[in-house]
Amino acid sequence: MPAARQLELVINGERRSAEVEPRTLLVHALRDGLGLTGTHVGCDTSQCGACTVLLDGRAVKSCTMLAVQAEGAEVTTIEGFARNDELHPIQRAFVEHHGLQCGFCTPGMILTASDLLTRAPDPDDATIRRALRGNFCRCTGYQSIVDSVRAAATALREGEAA
């Protein structure tokens, strides 16, 4: 087994270190090494999106990259997405617009939505659905998730204008 090494990461605004093997995937470093279990594992073919995190603000599937590849970048997981103890407007929209049932896909959905809304602040439904194509949900039929993202977009734009 290749030797483990100490990895330095900036996660949710904090400098953290964890012991990882060179082959350790980011998702496992987050979950097992750092106890950030809000990042979920739903597949082994990089398709379901349950493991999505933000890397310098862009959504990435943390099962598709090695932990060492994240060195030097800012990682945001669902645990660090709320702002100063208040739900982020996207999180609030998912609560209020019933964007979840079992909740297993939810962290990935929210972080993918964050990436989308950074790039496209006023997306139409088709754009939202396209952006979510790499995130599976088996419970909701997606419509309430699309509703949540649309509501979050409005809230974010209004927040910006205020």
């Binding site: 809000g38 669902i78 609560v95 019933h98 979840l100």
Partner: peptide
């Protein structure tokens, strides 16, 4: 009356511990 799920706040913040999450 429609109301958010009681478990929604924990599920949007990653606070819910699923069966693979417990230490």
């Amino acid at each position: 009356v429609s109301r958010p799920r009681v478990d929604a706040p924990d599920k949007v913040t990653g606070a819910t511990h699923f069966a693979a999450d417990g230490h």
